[in-house]
């Protein structure tokens, strides 16, 4: 079983690398040149590593939430929408607090509001699941698009969150969050990394402990294995399902709050930029292990920074990274059959 998993992941990584080399050749750079540019973009500067860490934090939070719901047998496809809900709520809170609110009050408040909003967004799907039996896959998927449109709505309407329009150049985005609501930097030289990374790490550890060491974790696992068996044991199946999906939404919402509370500290039209979907993929690839969540989230974060440099330094389209990532996902998802038969 172990060796089999190793073969699957190793083979997928090799195949993805090979595809990457071909894409580099197609873009007119030698694979070595492209590899060097990618490496430079990933680890070449404190700035690159810092922005990778910020991306990884958001992906990690979403994937951690996904893992909680997945333990109870629910598939949360709605990270993107929950992220949007969290971002909107964080922006509302962050621009309306008094300017002088200290960080110790403002920041936890903004993150909590984001958590609550993301949770509430997921709770719609969770409620439909437990009360009407509607597939959470479909409802969370639909709610993604509603959430994305909600962001569009609030940043375009002056009555809502749009900054005052002074000229035709005014961007459709919110005003910046007050000082106190912004995530502090980790304080590394020249690095934009914020404490979001620590928050994500704490969340992952807390969830790992919850799932492995507590009775709640065992109950969730029981529900995930068999709803009927869990119900016969007298477990509150619906309540467990509802709260696992809702807290998954909360974590994704918090990721949205963290994104808004990071430079440039505004809610803009495309602030979510696919984080929710990428976070879902991270959660799926990690297959329930929170250590794997951390590893895959870091890898995806690094690849995102690397891809930008690939375009700048080697002239290879940045979309190459997206292609390699999706191939990696397809290979690993497709190889499930190997693990099943072992």
């Amino acid at each position: 079983m172990r060796t089999n998993a190793f073969v699957v992941y190793g083979g997928a990584a090799l195949a993805a690398l090979l595809a990457g080399a071909l894409l580099a050749l197609g873009g007119g750079a030698s694979p070595l040149q492209a590899g060097a540019a990618l490496w430079e973009g990933m680890f070449g500067s404190a700035y690159a590593i810092g922005s990778s860490l910020n991306t990884a934090a958001a992906l990690g939070l979403i994937a951690t939430g996904f893992t909680v719901a997945h333990r109870a047998g629910l598939v949360n496809v709605g990270g993107e929408g929950q992220l949007c809900a969290g971002g909107i709520a964080a922006a509302f809170a962050g621009v309306s607090l008094p300017d002088a609110t200290p960080t110790l009050v403002a920041l936890p408040l903004v993150l909590l509001v984001a958590f609550a909003a993301g949770g509430a967004w997921a709770a719609i799907a969770a409620w439909l699941k437990v009360s009407r039996g509607t597939s959470e896959v479909i409802t969370t998927l639909l709610l993604n698009f509603v959430g994305l449109a909600m962001v569009l709505l609030v940043v375009h309407e002056e009555g809502l969150l749009r900054q005052p329009v002074t000229s035709s150049q005014t961007l459709p985005q919110s005003e910046p969050l007050i000082e106190g609501a912004r995530l502090p930097l980790l304080g590394l030289e020249g690095s934009p990394a914020t404490i979001a990374f620590l928050i994500a790490a704490v969340a992952a550890v807390a969830v790992a402990v919850l799932l492995r060491r507590t009775a709640t974790g065992t109950r969730l696992t029981a529900v995930g294995h068999s709803v009927t068996a869990a119900a016969r044991l007298g477990l509150p199946v619906r309540r467990l399902q509802f709260w696992s999906l809702t807290s998954a939404g909360g974590l994704a919402g918090m990721a949205g709050g963290a994104l808004v509370a990071t430079t440039p500290f505004v809610l803009a039209e495309s602030f979510s930029s696919g984080y929710g979907f990428a976070g879902l993929v991270v959660g799926l690839l990690a297959r329930g292990s929170l250590a794997a969540v951390a590893g895959v989230a870091l890898l995806f974060g690094l690849l995102a920074s690397g891809g930008m440099n690939l375009q700048l330094a080697a002239g290879v389209p940045a979309s190459s990274v997206q292609i390699v990532q999706s191939l990696l996902t397809i290979f690993i998802a497709g190889a499930v059959i190997l693990r099943r038969t072992s």
């Binding site: 598939v75 496809v77 896959v137 979907f277 879902l280 993929v281 799926l284 979309s319 190459s320 990274v321 997206q322 292609i323 990532q325 999706s326 191939l327 996902t329 397809i330 998802a333 497709g334 190889a335 499930v336 059959i337 099943r340």
Partner: peptide, 19 residues
């Protein structure tokens, strides 16, 4: 391969967009 249809669907979309 009986892979997860949602994962592979989203990944295939990303592949098409990137490609």
């Amino acid at each position: 391969l009986r892979a997860d249809q949602i994962v592979t669907g989203i990944a295939a979309n990303a592949l098409a967009l990137g490609g």
